[in-house]
Simulated scan of single mutants.
Amino acid sequence: MNNYQTARQQYSFEQIYQQYTPLVHGMLQRLHIHSNHEDFLQAGYVGLWLAYQHHDGEKGPFPAYAFLRVRGEMLTMLKKDANYYDRHSFSPDDQEPAQVRIETESWMPDLDTLAPYLNMLSDREQRWVIEHAVHDLPPRMIAAKYNVSVETVKGWRKGALAKLRKYVK
């Protein structure tokens, strides 16, 4: 096993900061971050600080650990931002976010709504539409329910969507 010294034993944080600034800035490009640069840079530097504080020389070299911590902090911030914008909508009139409530029952189709469309589909394609649209099952669950492969269910989906697209046009 390699025995590396910890980053704290070798360098001050100021030295690490100077040496790894290109890593933090490069991570913005690597993750395709195009807005809120200052916030993401701050998250990257927090990751660098955490890497500096928690690096264990027994577990490996500092550069690899720093890369993971910087990337991890930025990805965590991206996920938090995505969740926030998914759950809130902004109106142009006021700057305060309004909580968006999703009522799945109001937009989920029922068999009566789907009946006119099901007539043009094969039995297998109808199974896919009902299981997916009404019961919200993914292909793997539909495959398990009907004891077929996932690829078979994807074939049902492909056929059903092709027929439905023709009908809609």
Rank of each mutant, 00 (worst) to 15 (best):
N2Q: 10
N2T: 13
N3Y: 10
N3R: 05
Q5C: 11
Q5D: 10
T6R: 01
R8V: 08
S12A: 14
F13N: 11
E14H: 09
E14N: 14
E14T: 10
Q15R: 03
I16S: 02
Q18P: 05
Q18C: 09
Q19Y: 10
P22M: 01
L23H: 06
L23K: 00
V24D: 11
V24H: 01
V24P: 00
H25F: 10
H25R: 13
G26P: 01
L28D: 01
R30W: 06
R30H: 12
L31C: 09
L31Q: 05
H34V: 02
N36Q: 12
E38K: 12
D39L: 09
F40Y: 15
L41N: 06
Q42L: 02
A43G: 07
A43R: 02
G44W: 01
V46R: 11
G47T: 07
L48A: 05
L48M: 08
Y52T: 03
Y52A: 05
H55E: 08
H55G: 01
D56E: 15
G57Y: 08
G57T: 10
G57V: 00
E58Y: 07
G60C: 01
P61S: 14
F62K: 03
F62N: 03
P63K: 09
A64Y: 06
A64R: 13
Y65F: 15
Y65Q: 07
A66V: 05
F67D: 14
F67V: 04
L68E: 15
L68H: 14
L68Y: 12
V70G: 08
V70E: 02
G72L: 07
G72F: 08
G72M: 03
E73L: 04
T76L: 03
T76S: 14
L78D: 02
K79F: 00
K80Y: 08
K80G: 11
A82K: 11
A82F: 05
Y84M: 03
Y84W: 12
Y85C: 06
Y85H: 14
Y85L: 11
D86G: 09
D86V: 02
R87E: 07
H88T: 11
S89G: 10
S91M: 04
P92M: 06
P92T: 11
D94I: 10
Q95I: 08
P97L: 03
P97F: 01
A98G: 09
R101I: 13
I102R: 09
I102N: 04
T104N: 10
T104K: 09
T104W: 06
T104E: 12
T104Q: 12
T104L: 12
E105K: 08
E105Y: 07
S106P: 03
S106H: 11
M108V: 15
M108Y: 03
P109I: 04
D110C: 07
L111E: 13
D112Q: 13
D112I: 04
T113M: 13
L114H: 02
L114G: 12
P116C: 08
L118K: 02
L118E: 06
N119A: 14
M120Q: 15
M120R: 15
L121R: 01
L121Q: 00
R124S: 15
R127G: 09
V129R: 00
V129D: 04
I130E: 12
E131F: 04
H132F: 06
H132N: 14
A133S: 14
A133W: 04
A133I: 01
